[in-house]
Design a protein around this nucleic acid. Structure first.
Lengths: 140, 140
DNA sequence: GTTCGTGCAAACGGTTTGCAACAAT
DNA sequence: ATTGTTGCAAACCGTTTGCACGAAC
């Protein structure tokens, strides 16, 4: 835990203001895939003096500095992902919720073997239903 | 070519009005990946009496009836794809242009083997640069 | 004292909606 | 007559921008 956020920001050339730290604390450690609006909601919970503009500014800054990736997987809903290593994504048809799928879970041929393209990044995007939890020991 | 569009619409339970046919003629046969705005532009070229609302209505209707798929690959840009068979997509970093990549071009492990998910569809999304055309015989 | 961060409200751009007119059956 | 289709303009929603103030260096 508690990797030093202040340090992280500074290393990326971002001055660690209180507001930015508040945003970072949530968005750089979550495994949800929050939209800007959700970040605002979450962060203003504990930090009510934070404006919408600042959240957007901060998120864009983080993306630009490489601390965050933007995902566009559903209409009108840009979403942020602090997990920088390659991985795949599953999008639930009903809830829209996104799951990270480990790179190792799915063998994918190397697209850089395709002539004519130089691939910077790639991922499998899956859509469907998430099945009910296996219900291990909840029979009573 | 010239598969009977009127027939196609009717088979999907869509009454083939003139406007719908005009939209269909472009969007069901293109290999671009047009946004609604682009469809409007293209279709009003030859059919100036067509309103924005009708284009949006028609596109949504086509999607709902399964003649078209919606792709959301870039921010603020929903795009339509008449190619219904499974295939992958490449998005050019610079131009935003989308290429269809044949299913056969890339081996992908079956995600339905992953426990806990029932996958309805999946595709590889690749981003990067498209290299200059191979320049086969253009030396003079 | 210049640069940087922030809040506010307005602007923006793509999409949807309400409503009234019209066409098809 | 009823139902389906269209155009127009306004509404909508997430995001960006302009500007003015205040804090950090």
């Amino acid at each position: 835990m508690a990797l030093d956020l202040q340090e992280t920001l500074r290393k990326s050339g971002i001055r660690p203001s209180a507001h930015r730290l508040a945003v970072a604390e949530y968005v750089l450690t979550t495994d949800e895939h929050p939209s800007a609006e959700r970040v605002l909601e979450r962060v203003t919970g504990r930090f009510p003096l934070l404006s919408r503009a600042t959240v957007y500014n901060t998120l864009n800054l983080f993306v630009q500095k490489g601390l965050l990736r933007e995902l566009v997987l559903a209409e009108g809903n840009v979403v942020f992902d602090p997990k920088l290593e390659p991985h795949h994504h599953f999008v639930d048809d009903e809830t829209g919720k996104i799951d990270d799928i480990p790179w190792s879970a799915l063998a994918v041929g190397d697209p850089n073997k395709m002539a004519g393209y130089q691939i910077r990044e790639y991922m499998v995007v899956m859509r469907g239903r998430k099945l009910g939890r296996p219900r291990v020991n909840k029979t009573r």
